[in-house]
Amino acid sequence: MPEPTAAAVRQAPTGVIHDIGYQRYQGPRLGRRQVFGALYLHGLRTAFGFGRSAKAKIFPWLVVGIVSLVAVALAAVRSQIGEPVATYAQFADAMSWLVIFFVAVVAPELVSRDLRSGVLPLYFSRPLPRSDYALAKLLALVTALWLLLGGPQLLMFLGAAFTTKQGMRGVWNELLDLLPGLLYAGLWALVFASVGLLVASLTGKRAFAAGGVVAVFLMTTPIVGVLSILPSRAANELAGLASPSTLVQGVGIWSLGDLLVEGDPGEMMIGGFGPVYALAAVLLVAGATALLLARYRKVAS
């Protein structure tokens, strides 16, 4: 864009403004809850690239496309062979890598961008409290992740419901399978959003933030690997606590049982430590959220 000439700068603003006149605003002013809602919706739209450039839409929708395609394929195979290839919860587990990459792109988009451009003083000089900013962004990311996993689960459900041979009873049974799956997707969303957003909020550089998110989620898996081959049964059964992904799977195995592992315990054993996994997940989400709020009490003041 060409720089405006000195003459243009001198002439442009004056005169015209004088003619129009300023109008005071007499309309309603919304309260804290509506402002929070507006920021939340703005965050959710940002997560999927709405209201942003076409470039910002590519990655989120690529991931959405892949998970939907997998869900449609699973539903199609199931309608052919007559039995489920993967349960709803197993589908969420299988998609965890894509969820990680989605978080790595979207979390920096939500918070690192604002840190880098220095726009935060413009938010914090408005009535909205700092904690509301952080929580609205977190809730937006949780919702985006839950939609990312829950949407395809719904596709699988629709596929199953329309091809079931047991009538309404089959649909009902399918729904009973879907609901725990959706809850499990919510757990994935909570854990990944809280940890991912905390990591992203530490830096204004999006590339660093994305790298940090991937590192936290993927670099911890070797630790799980090492712990699970130690010659101690307790260490093996607690190994999953070391990484967010295996932590979520541990909670899933404990709470969903055969919806996730189907009789065969698979490679992951948690023994009797299910409640420990659940507690660890709660602590992880609560701790990450507390640290996120602490981060936003300090930043840009």
Binding site: Y25, R29, V35, L39, S117, V119, Y123, P127
Partner: peptide
Amino acid sequence: CLPPDLSAAELVTHLGRMSGLP
């Protein structure tokens, strides 16, 4: 303090909403 990829209209509208405007 301005995000470079937003237009002025988008940014000021968003910040107006953050101030409680419908």
